[in-house]
Design a protein around this nucleic acid. Structure first.
Lengths: 167, 167
DNA sequence: GAGTACCGACCATTTGGTCGGATAGGCAAA
DNA sequence: TTTGCCTATCCGACCAAATGGTCGGTACTC
């Protein structure tokens, strides 16, 4: 899956099983032993991406802060310049375009979104404001992944967004 | 190209030339007469997407407004619930993942971003604020395309973002 | 000896792309 | 007007390569 991630990030969803297998150091047969089909591999990657992103954010939570919005600030840090791994987990967007094909996964994605909202508003922050901030952070991350944001503007945005979490 | 757009939106970048040709009502040979290769077709679609999105936004500019931020507000309206066509033009994201392959296009994309910033800040708005608002709008649009925003929360976000343009 | 991980040969199908030719419209000369 | 020619559009048959997936077999572990 690590190999698959790299290849998808670099070349999009068009990667062949043979390529993945080669980079992973196994044969195509071996690969298909673990993931019964191409779609199964991709679904597994999507699920993995969700939890990896969550982990990446949670790792950035600063427990020493004693104001509401700890997780939201970690969310911002993860997407706007903090953790490259979290950004990658969020940014393997090629994958998310084929999501429609698997009904289950679409539902899981919806649940995941609701769970984030629950977690981010758990300490009393206003939902509308949280939504605005998280979508802005996501927008910056997406723009950055296309090279449309310089490190400077990204840093500035991060500072602004972090400030916005302090009511 | 209209056919290709539909198919890419529905099934991702994996569409075959045969499928596109069939939906377009031409033969594969006929299709390849207009676009010498698969990549040529996709590049054309990307360029087309850029101008279609710009057109969609510009069509939503309200000339009767007499406060700075006219274009920025149109940008918000286009992405947060206004023009479905503009959202689609922005949301054919599957395409943008393969962008790295064509160096020229990546440059064009960068120029396009700068042009937007120039146009959006032309009437004196603060660049940082403009950036924040446009990225937020983009984030909402992306989330909406995955079904992660209800029409209500989208409308609320639009109102908030529009308000933010009035200094 | 049972189960798991893995290989490698194999196959049917699909894919992007080529090519020779058919059709139709525009334009100039006769 | 007619004739001839040229170009743009488009077809359909064709091809080599690649692809997802199957299957029988092997090696290793518990």
């Amino acid at each position: 899956m690590h190999a698959a991630r790299e290849l998808v990030a670099a070349k999009g969803t068009g990667v062949s099983l043979a390529e993945v297998a080669e980079l992973a150091g196994v044969s195509k047969g071996g690969l298909l032993h673990h993931f019964p089909s191409r779609d199964a591999l991709f679904d597994a990657m999507r699920r993995d991406g969700i939890v990896r992103f969550r982990d990446g954010v949670m790792r950035l939570v600063d427990l020493s802060e004693n104001r509401p919005g700890k997780i939201l600030r970690a969310y911002i840090r993860a997407l706007c310049g903090g953790d490259p791994e979290a950004m990658e987990a969020f940014g393997t967007s090629p994958l998310w375009n084929g999501v429609n094909e698997t009904k289950e996964l679409l539902e899981e994605l919806g649940e995941n979104g609701e769970r984030w909202m629950r977690e981010l508003t758990a300490d009393g922050l206003d939902e509308g404001r949280v939504r605005l901030i998280m979508r802005a952070a996501e927008g910056f991350a997406a723009a950055a992944s296309f090279g449309e944001e310089s490190p400077e503007t990204l840093a500035e945005a991060r500072a602004t967004l972090l400030q916005m979490t302090y009511d």
